[in-house]
Amino acid sequence: MLEIRNLHARIVDDGTEIIRGLNLTVKAGEVAAIMGPNGSGKSTLSYILAGREDYEVTEGDILYNGQSILEMDPAERATSGIFLAFQYPMEIPGVATMEFLKVAMNEQRKARGEEPLKIPEFLKRVKEAAASLSMEMAMLKRPLNVGFSGGEKKRAEILQMKLLEPKLCVLDETDSGLDIDALKIVSDGVNALRAPDRAFLVITHYQRLLEHIVPDTVHVLYKGQVIKSGDKSLALDLEANGYAGVIGEAA
């Protein structure tokens, strides 16, 4: 589903190269964990996948279902099925969460040539999804992410993911700032979405999240490259011995 080939990318403003020859393949139905120390390029990778303009790809390619996505803008990538759950979701003052959901869902439908959702159907879907994440409907009348706690923001991200039904879900440090109860709710939400035609890229610093979202593969990112890949035992190994050993091996 996702194939990243020898990707090199730098920050447009100052030319700093962050991704330096990254290779990664994720199959449909797979949950791939990306781990790595701070500054290894994990979040940058998620932004580049989603099409942020602050980064420039200088070499290599990103294939999604066999097609390069480098020329697509963020909205086009989103409507093609790529979703990014942000580490720090943005506040959108004055735009009720409900209204935002409706616009996003209908824009995606429009891009696929489908009719906009009828209001009762829309409400039904939102109510079901919110209930499964233990979110109050009253919260959805508030402007998106404005005054939300850290846990509420992360839940709102998963709610959007659920409703938009993407094919490639990128979760950027979704566990950061979550207490154990919230972590459980968010993980359950993600697990419920696991499907044979959907892939996940779970970016995290700690093994903790992977106890709840059990990955099929684990990849260690360091200095903009995948330096080691393995199964879920690799995450346990990292937890026990730290990154130093893996980094030493690669060097």
């Binding site: 602050d54 909205a75 989103a78 943005m90 506040e91 959108i92 996003a104 995606q108 959007q160 938009l164």
Partner: peptide
Amino acid sequence: EDQKFYVMQRGIP
């Protein structure tokens, strides 16, 4: 740019 990117990432042109 952060706000715009966030909104566009949900499929909104």
